[in-house]
Design a binder for these strands. Structure first.
Lengths: 194, 194, 194, 194
DNA sequence: CATGAATGAGGCTTCATTCAT
DNA sequence: AATGAATGAAGCCTCATTCAT
């Protein structure tokens, strides 16, 4: 089927393109973590080892890039929610997922900025991610609540927002531990029997 | 009309200087509330009715100005803590102060950005505010804890951070309500008798 | 399915090449009419359904492409001149041709830009077109003059330039009518008997 | 009244500012004449010997700059129309003004581009200039027509457009002569008695 | 003290054009 | 012959900050 006997070497350039694309996403991820969501795209392209024009070829707008960076991780997060739901009792699943969310924030340092920085108020990027995270957290909370032993008046997404707040304290190396304390406290406040 | 002919003008000069300084802080405060922390200093100086150079005379750098804006409000917050401590029982005082803190965040929309936007590591501005807020919140929590009916494993400052997280959801007009729900939940999680 | 198994594909390759070339010219023509002469070549190649590289294979530079677009239409114009000369009396032929020229400008909206945009001095593109249009208009004018009833001190090409000036008023939807009025006036000014 | 004894030296900087402003207008004028209206503002600022930021300080937008360049000359033109109306018989006045208009085009080479290039179709800049030139030319034509010996079916502004067309032939050094021939022809076509 | 002006530097974005396959 | 990818270069614009008066 192949013209040259192996199926791989054909279209090396194409492969490079995809490698660059990947590099850009990685660079953007790191850059955002380091400098916040307002990173210069110039910076990102430099980090990725490509020209700024190449960045623009792959991502026609800053948002398109952020979207992509964001997307991957968010999908993973959502997948984890399903996994945990299957493997654990409701409250544990919720707790564990919040812990995973904190891990996610770790890579995403600056992402919170990203959301609010994007100009148009309730913008597409935010709305979408919002919506995507809303499902799993709501489901997990609902499942915990359905046990009858758990009650929480806080809107599910606000749990994530609270953790984001703790995560945004940039310099503190112990923030993850702090966040876990907060998770425990939040759960404890929701348990009816004590 | 002479510059030194009366005893008043000499003082007025000084007064003008201070008025300018005050105006600048007010303008910066409003500008930040309105446009986020990335406001152009030009904008601020224009709003204050002085030249950009005058701004620089008073505040040698952008950060110095932010610092000051921040400072004022923080001092007010601290004052409130003392007031509440004097007027209310420990848990109520804590709860009320957290509510006041949420109000503070309301004016400061964008201030959170300001903090995280400042680029490198444990920056001076943040650290100082951090330190200054640490005292009142710690004191309030300690006082509540000392009643023996209250226990919280979360680091006091993290309570504020959690609220900040909820506050940072820019477009939601109900965020304040959400924040208060969170406060109640956090307090509830800390009460030993239920 | 084999590449060389039939005698047709070999020719088709060539045919494709020519088709592409033609498509490119058409696309460029439309693009210029729509967006002015500053169209991006990327746009043109996309419209033509080929890659930008293919565009470059056919036309080594932006100017080469414009040249070609221009050329085709100019040839058609010249053909029309001959036709009109054959079919009508001198003055009518001249008038009609000027009307056709106005039609030509209509499709070419933006072409005028194209010419003057090319940066330096008496550029090749312009000069050539210049030269090519010079013949027919001069011939038509000469033929009208030879009747002895017609006299015009204006350089023949300037008649076209004047019309181009009227045509370049972009927003006016009645410009064609205006141009025809101008044609009539110009002819009227040349008629000796009145 | 002055603090230093002469009224001049005070505010030297301000004077510089105005000089720069003037330089920018001159540079823009020349640059447009040379490269057309799409000149890079960077280029203009460089020619004027100031930084691009300074250009922007004086003219917040490209249009603002063009407006200014344009404005001065247009006002002069309008003034001339009044002068000529006062000093000459109707037809002569019209003819002379058209000659002056040709002179104006000489400085303005590329201005025609400017008009059509500015993005929004019938845009403010164009409309205004349009309107401003409309008055004098209409008045001059009307006055000539009122003599009863002159008739022209061409819209007054189209006379200017026709001349602009001739003027836009960049390389020809004799274009001014050509334009004057055209003027004479246009006038001749309008005279009823011959 | 205050001012208006100026600027360097940096980010954004778009192209025409080249290159390896 | 055709392609997608890459890039240098250039334009646009904005801002924090400095300076001469």
């Amino acid at each position: 089927m192949s013209k040259w006997g192996t199926s791989v070497p054909r279209r090396r350039k194409r492969a490079d393109g995809e490698r660059n694309r990947a590099q850009l996403i990685i660079a953007a991820k790191n850059a955002i973590a380091e400098h916040g969501a307002a990173v210069s795209l110039d910076q990102v392209s430099r980090d990725a080892g490509v020209s700024i024009a190449t960045l623009y070829r792959h991502f026609p707008s800053r948002d398109a890039l952020l979207q992509e960076v964001y997307s991957e991780e968010v999908e993973a997060l959502i997948g984890t929610a399903e996994q945990l739901t299957a493997d654990h009792d409701p409250v544990t699943a919720l707790r564990e997922w919040l812990v995973v969310f904190v891990e996610f924030l770790n890579t995403k340092r600056g992402m919170a900025d990203a959301l609010s920085t994007l100009i148009d108020g309730p913008d597409a990027l935010f709305s979408e991610t919002h919506a995507r995270l809303s499902s799993p957290i709501s489901a997990l909370v609902a499942r915990a609540t359905d046990t009858g032993k758990f009650r929480i008046d806080v809107e599910p997404l606000d749990l994530l927002r609270a953790l984001t707040g703790v995560a945004n304290v940039r310099p503190d190396p112990d923030w993850k531990q702090s966040a876990i304390h907060l998770i425990d406290h939040l759960i404890r406040g929701a348990e009816l029997e004590r």
